[in-house]
Design a binder for these strands. Structure first.
Lengths: 244, 244
DNA sequence: AGTGGTCCAATGGTCCAACCAATTCTGCAT
DNA sequence: ATGCAGAATTGGTTGGACCATTGGACCACT
């Protein structure tokens, strides 16, 4: 007998039902990102369930990054939801040592290059203009503040991921980005970290504007290479100083 | 001033503290996958928090797939936990339609190519022999069962990710893989799905054995391309049949 | 020995009512 | 108008209670 012909049944689903109802509500009210959704107390009353159950459901959504709760303020929609959406929580074991950071960079290298290539293929004129705008902002921040600005730099890259048409790029790289910056705002004591990557932002943009996927891919790889070099330099310095 | 030099302090974090304590417990007791962890009531008593708080924490872990709760039985460890792990909840709009699957393939294309290239760079003789072994098994399964075997095929790819030296490849692609197969064991009714990808497994292996990163990358790209073609074929057929 | 049934303790799921802490709104004094 | 103190709102936490399911112990019968 095929043991798969009798799959385990699923009966209980109280809090899942709450989430399903909430999806319907978001749709019915046409809630946008950042909008506030009903109070826990109101949800509990309307859905005829305990507030505790509502909280368990919302806790799950919060863990999935779909929603943000602010005490005293409310619960806010943080990502689009739809009935047939797939949530794929991925937990990665990763420390903040040199090896882990290099590993995140290897992932980022692969995805950044692919995203840049796809972006060059698919960008509309409006998309290109938007990327150019982000590039200008970043370059101006670079000149006035004399150094790479994490914030504006990140905005530029995000614009590229968005134009690539595949939201997974932004989601995965964002996770890598967060891991990278969580403990290493100035990684390993390298003061002008990321400085060397500056010129490649414009070359990437130029290849995208020229609708040159392979060129965009190549420039993206060069950019990541400079970051890897910075990281290696920092690791070497750290190793040296620890030998005192 | 760098606004990131003053990270937001954490004043209230009861349930996060619970999870941190739980990580410590799992480590201290050397719990393995599938082991049962303490009951909610015991945790609440030991950690001096309410059982509800314990439940919120466990709910978060359950949502992230780290833990499985069985009423009347207990809570069981479902994945490895570590103090500094990265949670990366991916949300894929649209569920099981053609677009979503193509998006996962775009990610897989980028990572598969990079992993193959890194593998070709770093593989030892023993690694190459191991990959050859997986390849033989897969090819034999292909001949005897007259078609691609998901299981053996996946083993082969996993071996490559492992040799790449970066565990992130395997983790991320595994998530994609699971997503891909969850609803599409025989995607879109294409009976010999994946059949066309068969020859490229050997060519990838040959490029790795020859320590040819660029070649391995190119062959990996060809393999993904065949899968994309299969998917497009299936989508076209589906579209046709729905026009009845 | 094995089969099936019953009971019972343990465990997760739900509920309730209250209070705490952060935020936001309100209205009064200036 | 402006600014500040207090009230109202909202998520966070607590403790206690009960329900539903599970799994093992025990037992009667074959």
């Amino acid at each position: 007998m095929d043991q798969n012909s009798l799959p385990p049944i699923q009966i209980t689903a109280r809090d899942d039902a709450v989430l399903k109802a909430l999806v319907g509500f978001v749709r019915a009210e046409a809630l946008q990102l950042g909008d506030r959704l009903p109070t826990e107390r109101i949800l509990a009353e309307r859905l005829k369930v305990s507030r505790n159950t509502v909280r368990e459901a919302l806790t799950r959504w919060e863990g999935l990054g779909l929603v943000e709760r602010r005490q005293g303020s409310g619960t806010y929609l943080k990502a689009a939801v739809s009935p047939d959406m797939l949530h794929m929580p991925l937990t990665l074991a990763g420390g903040n040592d040199f090896t882990s950071l290099m590993q995140t960079l290897e992932i980022r290298r692969a995805l950044e290059a692919e995203a840049a290539a796809l972006c060059a293929e698919r960008a509309s004129q409006a998309d290109i203009a938007e990327i150019a705008r982000k590039l200008d902002i970043m370059e101006q921040a670079f000149r006035t503040r004399e150094g790479m600005s994490s914030e504006e730099d990140w905005e530029f890259h995000q614009a590229i991921y968005r134009v690539s048409g595949n939201p997974l790029f932004e989601q995965i790289i964002a996770a890598m980005h967060e891991l990278f910056h969580r403990f290493w705002e100035h990684p390993l004591g390298v003061r002008d970290f990321g400085h060397a990557s500056f010129p490649y932002h414009r070359t990437i943009y130029e290849r995208i504007a020229a609708r040159d996927p392979q060129g965009a891919r190549a420039e993206a790889l060069k950019l990541i290479a400079t970051v890897e070099d910075d990281l290696k330099r920092g690791a070497a310095k750290l190793k040296l100083s620890s030998q005192t």
